[in-house]
Design a protein around this nucleic acid. Structure first.
Lengths: 126, 126
DNA sequence: TTTCTAGGTTGACAGCCGTCGAATCAGGGT
DNA sequence: ACCCTGATTCGACGGCTGTCAACCTAGAAA
């Protein structure tokens, strides 16, 4: 490991297997234990209102990326707290951060969203 | 309120608004605070490996429903713990339970899954 | 170098969450 | 009536999580 100059690049599993039509949805067959652990981490990251809003603000932001300085003011929360939530989203592979000069910009990782969306595809097992 | 003979019907918000093309996806515009709280509750429910597997086992089960007795044996967890997780999924509106004789059967609520899937639809804001 | 600002890290604290054993409830068979 | 089994609820415990204040780092501009 070791800490680099930019500790903002700690994505755990960039794109497990979401490249193409992949993961059988939740409703097709029981989830394996390992895969459940992996997916639960992503859902848990989205399981907080602040993080969900942060993710949405970043994903919907004009240009596809948002500066942290634009995010902190929106919440009644301290800087460290926002930073913490961004880290959780980062470690879940939902966003990536890049430093440009003084500011840090985050952008969403569409693959992750797509992976989760695929998982929830409805195949009604009547 | 009051407790009926079958306390297994405590769905909080059966189908908020997932009937038709509805909720603007995460990537379209920033999530409102109230909606974020509501959605976070669902994601949080799915943010545990055991619950995710339970949900998957129920949703994918032959006949669309699964008996609790078929679920408890799969995990190295006590009955009360499984029951607790089922309650969380129930209160998130992801599953519903029905007692038939001695056994209790659970089935998934497709609307909820659909609601979440819609939310994650990708509208890449390049 | 020094100073300033934007973010991140650390350490600590309260509250929540997953887990269990024991007790309780609901039905079906004796 | 009694007991047995399936499932939930209750009470408690340890670990995790969201939050903050304080401190530290990265880069830009004097």
């Amino acid at each position: 490991m070791s800490k680099q100059t930019l500790p903002i690049s700690d994505v755990p599993a960039p794109g497990p297997r979401a490249s193409e039509a992949c993961c059988s949805p939740l409703t097709r067959e029981p989830l394996g234990e390992d895969r459940a652990v992996e997916l639960a981490r992503v859902f848990k990251a989205m399981g907080d209102p602040v993080r969900l809003r942060l993710l949405s603000m970043i994903a919907s932001h004009h240009g596809g990326e948002a500066c942290v300085c634009e995010l902190t003011g929106v919440f009644d929360l301290s800087g460290p707290t926002i930073s913490h939530h961004l880290k959780v989203l980062r470690e879940a592979g939902l966003i990536t951060g890049e430093r440009r000069g003084t500011w840090v910009y985050y952008r969403a990782v569409p693959q992750r969203l797509g992976e989760v969306a695929d998982l929830l595809d409805l195949a009604p097992a009547t």
